[in-house]
Design a binder for these strands. Structure first.
Length: 885
RNA sequence: ACUCGGGUGGUGGAAUUGGUAGACACGCAGGACUUAAAAUCCUGUUCGCUGUAAGGCGAGUGACGGUUCAAUUCCGUUCCCGAGUACCA
């Protein structure tokens, strides 16, 4: 708001909108907790939010407000979904094209020039295409569509009969109720974002995101060059396909690791390993992906009893399964090279697998060495080659033998696009005989039907599945019952702001061409690998299809830090309703407590659960309120206390509804006013930096604003401002401030800008300057930061300009005059090799050459130098001179 | 665990390009005004040693090491905190 007010004062036409991304899990959860329909609570919360925003004095253009959960908006989210559904990615032209174009290609030449990106990767000729029935054709087209339906894993909670978000799962059990959660395959919708991986990488070079943000996106996309190759399996017909970026280490392979979910596991497991493998699979099933990757210190795995054959030296290589290998990445199988990879090394050591060394002295036996600079030894046809050269030699050999090929791999996976939830956009899709049929654009919006209960549907389907007369259509056709994820509506909202009420198109091309990219987008790094990738992808698709004229949505991104909250936790003993006070964990249990709770000891595993900070006084939990919380979900809770109190755990983290650690600005705004609140929030620290919310310094900013007021009005004397001509000293204060505030605001350094205002007002107070000619420009400078007081004082001064209205016709921002700052000369400290020796007078506009001459002619300095010629003379403008001997 | 940030007085932070570390503010201490309070104003406030005083000496930007005449800033190692890790968005 400060920046847009500033730009308006500078004469720009600023689009500064606000809206509500009101679909999604938090709104649905809140509805479940309070027993109200999400549309009601959303409406209420938006009203609260709006009144809070108004209180803080935001200058949003409310004519352009959007709400993603309103049919007038989500109609176009559905429409864009249909456009994406009707598109495929042509890898030759490197852009999205219509499905009709693809069908024409298939009819003419099959898919020989357009490799199938779908899982099956099938190949067919034109004749084969023609021979397929409609269902067969649609199945193939589904493998090309940029939104597609396929089977994927979800967090399934049998006890709740529902799919859970990762956020709702803690340590493998549901947060609600503490029930077991497992992986389950279900039909899902996906966004084929992998097809855009290269474009998303390339586009980063044309936009102003921070290097950190670009790096996060690059790493997430994770492009790697390597090879895919097949290893024959002893006594088994199907080969094992692995992906590796280091084919040069092929002679150092000592074991294979396959993802536990890999389809070969059940087929190759030997009879005597069967029992152990099954035990391990049950263990893995209960673990989240993050846990599987995270706990590397604790190495787990299980031998399948099968062996792969190294095609180059015929060695038999044991095949293991282990949780650190994920089915979704690469081929779901890796080759273990313990001498070159630390994780493989740890695995080999842990399971006593003998290690082959192919890099000589580079491998010490104590840890792996991932170098590419070693000369290969004991490595067959690669012997004597430098590893980085051997990579290509190895791939060529693999390709010539027909057992594998060069392959570019991406870490990024296609994005899951459906949720088994109620509060989201319904898919404009009808299933008929296994074929997904899109609705016609004229039938949009497909309104989200009203329901009275939003519990899960049968077989883990979303709540919409319960509305049979909505789901079931003539001829056994059924509507899609899942809804779109929260990020659907947020992937294109910036376009809707440009043309918010248009009922003919999502955004008129004239509007999007006029406004173009978002010039400055302010958002947190938490969006790095979600929203900021999805919206970039959607923009690229809409560009490819010709609906907009730019293919990157945001020209410049500013990462504002998060205002953090102080969270409170309770600790629930796993699979119980017993809660341990934080200092009792792992301690001893009393006989009374044993009797009441039935627990034998306190060394049980606990699940950490967020509680609402408003139920906690400092760190002490209000037990009565906790029992009433979430519709009485914890009514039957039992507590193990300390000194009769329940003490909560504390942590500073992102302020978020789901963490129940939010605080409300209203109290402060009521007490100090919006201007103080705005300036204090800026004064807290740099915008890019996260900081815990703390209001204890707000008095200082409030004092500053009162001091400013007293330059105009005195409590006793009333009006004190005058129309006299300012002195040079007063004009100097003003123009130094204009310069600094302008620089600070342009570089988003709002905290130092606030300090500059404070210094300026202190100096004017000291000079007893009450002159209109100085004060009026100061109010204009201040108006983006403190609009209310600026506006009021300007009108009391009888100003001809109104800072809060800004100006579309021309700038009213004060113009900096450098002539008013000029000083003739100044005394500088001169240091020799860093030690300050003397002072010297130098003109402010002196150049480096003049400074050097002065130094060389100065007798005192020459004495210090003892006639020796200095190596270098450094003149640090406005600060000091350093002579290097 | 991995990816990306961050760590400076009692506290929030400043130092924009490697150049006098601690601007500005909070807090604290002392003082002025006041019957008193609020409000306002003034002085001091990195730490240690030293001096009657003006001052002087030394250390100091999470820790250890390196580059440099000069490092909060660059490099290496390490510790701690935060964000993200694919169904929060």
């Amino acid at each position: 708001d400060i920046y847009s007010r500033y730009k308006r004062l500078k004469g720009f036409n600023v689009l500064h909108p606000m809206g509500y991304d009101s679909f999604g899990l938090p709104a649905e959860q809140y509805a479940l907790e309070t027993g109200q329909h999400p549309s009601v609570t959303t409406e209420k919360n938006i009203a609260t939010f709006r009144s809070q925003l108004d209180k803080i004095g935001f200058s949003y253009d409310w004519e352009r407000e959007v709400r993603t959960s309103e049919s007038g908006y989500y109609r176009w989210t559905q429409w864009i979904f249909l456009q994406i559904f009707d598109s495929w990615f042509n890898r030759i032209s490197n852009k999205a094209e219509r499905i009709t174009v693809l069908v024409k290609i298939f009819e003419a030449e099959g898919n020989s020039n357009h490799f199938c990106p779908g899982e099956k990767g099938q190949q067919f000729s034109a004749a084969q295409w023609h021979s397929l029935d409609e269902k067969g054709k649609q199945e193939i087209l589904m493998d090309y569509r940029l939104t597609f339906s396929a089977y994927g894993e979800v967090n399934w909670c049998e006890a709740l009969g529902t799919v859970l978000a990762n956020d709702e799962v803690i340590n493998g059990v549901s947060e609600r109720g503490g029930h077991l959660v497992e992986k389950k395959k279900m039909r899902q919708w996906y966004l084929r974002i992998t097809e855009y991986a290269d474009r998303l990488l390339e586009g980063l070079e044309r936009i102003e995101f921070s290097d950190a943000m670009k790096e996060m996106q690059k790493n997430w996309i994770g492009k790697s060059q390597g090879a895919e190759m097949d290893f024959a399996i002893k006594n088994h017909p199907t080969p094992l396909r692995v992906y590796t970026t280091r084919p040069d280490t092929i002679f150092g392979v000592d074991f294979m690791v396959v993802a536990p979910e890999h389809e070969l596991v059940s087929k190759i497991t030997s009879a005597d390993q069967k029992e152990e493998i099954e035990k391990y699979l049950t263990y893995v099933k209960s673990r989240s992906e993050r846990e599987r990757l995270a706990e590397v210190k604790q190495i787990t795995g299980c031998f399948t009893g099968a062996y792969a054959i190294n095609p180059f030296d015929g060695r038999e290589i044991p095949i293991w399964i282990a949780e650190y290998v994920l089915a979704g990445y690469g081929t779901g199988a890796i080759m273990g090279v313990p001498c070159g990879d630390q994780r493989d090394f740890g695995f080999a050591q842990h399971f006593n697998i003998p290690i082959t060394n192919i890099i000589g002295d580079h491998f010490t036996g104590a840890e792996a060495n991932a170098t590419k600079e070693a000369i290969l030894q004991h490595a067959g046809f690669l012997n004597g080659l430098l590893m980085k050269d051997a990579i290509h030699v190895a791939i060529n050999k693999i390709e010539s033998l027909g057992i594998g090929k060069r392959k570019v791999n991406f870490r990024m996976r296609d994005a899951g696009f459906s949720r088994q939830r109620y509060w989201g956009e319904p898919f404009p899709i009808i299933w008929s005989d296994g074929i997904a049929l899109p609705l016609d654009a004229k039938e949009l919006p497909l309104e989200l039907p009203h329901v009275d209960t939003y519990g899960p549907g049968p077989d883990g389907e979303g709540p919409l599945a319960n509305i049979t007369d909505w789901v079931n259509l003539p001829n056994k056709a059924k509507r899609e019952t899942s809804t779109m994820p929260g990020y659907a509506g947020s992937s294109w909202y910036f376009l809707r702001y440009m043309d918010p009420t248009n009922e003919q198109v999502f955004c008129d091309r004239k509007a999007s061409d006029y406004w173009g990219q978002v010039d400055i987008y302010i958002g947190g790094t938490e969006h790095a690998v979600g929203h900021l990738l999805y919206s970039r992808m959607w923009t690229k698709i809409l560009f490819d299809l010709g609906y907009i004229g730019h293919d990157e949505p945001f020209k410049k991104l500013l990462n504002q830090g998060m205002i953090q909250g102080s969270s409170r936790f309770v600790y629930r003993v796993r699979n119980t309703h017993i809660f341990l006070s934080s200092n009792r964990m792992g301690g001893t249990i009393s006989e009374d407590e044993k009797l009441i709770t039935g627990l034998a000891s306190l060394s049980n595993e606990v699940d950490r659960i967020h509680v609402d900070v408003n139920m906690v006084d400092g760190v002490e939990l209000n037990i009565a309120e906790f029992r009433k919380w979430k519709n009485g979900e914890y009514a039957s809770a039992q507590f193990i206390l300390e000194d009769g109190k329940y003490i909560c755990g504390v942590e500073t983290e992102k302020m978020s509804k789901s963490k129940y650690n939010t605080v409300n600005p209203d109290v402060l705004v009521d007490k100090f006013g919006a201007d103080t609140f705005r300036m204090y929030e800026m004064f807290l620290g740099p915008v890019e930096q996260s900081k815990p919310w703390d209001s204890k310094g707000i008095e200082g900013v409030h004092r500053f604003l009162r001091k400013l007021w007293r330059l105009f009005y005195d409590d006793l004397k009333g009006k004190v401002w005058i129309e006299d001509k300012p002195t040079d000293a007063e004009m100097k204060v003003l123009h130094r401030t204009i310069k600094k505030i302008e620089e600070d605001t342009e570089r988003f350094s709002f905290n130092t800008a606030v300090s500059t205002f404070m210094i300026c007002v202190n100096e004017l107070a000291e000079l007893k300057c009450h002159k209109k000619e100085v004060l009026e420009p100061l109010l204009l400078l201040l108006s983006p930061y403190a609009p209310h007081i600026s506006e009021e004082l300007c009108s009391l001064l009888g100003s001809t300009v109104s800072p809060s209205l800004g100006s579309m016709d021309g700038a009213i921002y004060p113009v900096f005059n450098p002539a008013l700052l000029v000083e003739s000369s100044k005394e500088y400290p001169v240091s020799i090799n860093g030690k300050v020796r003397t002072n010297i007078v130098i003109a402010l506009d002196a150049t480096q050459a003049i400074v050097e001459e002065i130094i060389l002619q100065n007798e005192v300095i020459q004495k210090w130098l003892e006639g020796k010629a200095p190596k270098k003379i450094i003149y640090v403008k406005n600060k000091m001179v350093n002579v290097v001997m």
